[in-house]
């Protein structure tokens, strides 16, 4: 499977990763190489095989509904890039 420039731009956008024009050719080539490696899977007939998401195939444990957390806002926000009045700041969100 080989990708072209538009594919790479689309994926980079989906993943929200800035990619400069001069990075695109090399990235395209490397991603295509990886996809070639991956595509070896396509030759295998897996009809009727159930997908495996977790190796141990156990089931979800449930937690009792209890409030166990207290307010640590100040601690948690010391490592935040930008806050004000307890809020995380981001460039204006347009709806």
């Amino acid at each position: 499977m080989s990708l072209d420039r538009t594919d790479v731009e689309k994926i980079a956008h989906l993943a929200r990763i800035a990619i400069s024009d001069d990075e695109i050719p090399a990235t395209t080539a490397k991603l295509s190489g990886i996809l070639d490696l991956i595509d070896k899977m396509q030759a295998v007939d897996t009809d009727g095989v159930a997908p495996l998401a977790h190796p141990l195939e156990t089931t979800q444990r449930l937690r009792p509904d209890a409030v166990t957390e207290s307010n640590h806002r100040d601690d948690y926000q010391t490592i935040a890039p930008a806050t004000e009045s307890g809020l995380y700041l981001v460039p204006k969100v347009i709806e």
């Binding site: 509904d65 409030v67 957390e69 307010n71 806002r73 926000q77 307890g86």
Partner: peptide
């Protein structure tokens, strides 16, 4: 009382980011 995946309170109207 608590959130779906954590032990934080779900009460409405708390100070921002304190829950």
């Amino acid at each position: 009382a608590s959130k779906i995946f954590s032990g934080s309170a779900t009460a409405f109207g708390a100070e921002p980011n304190t829950q």
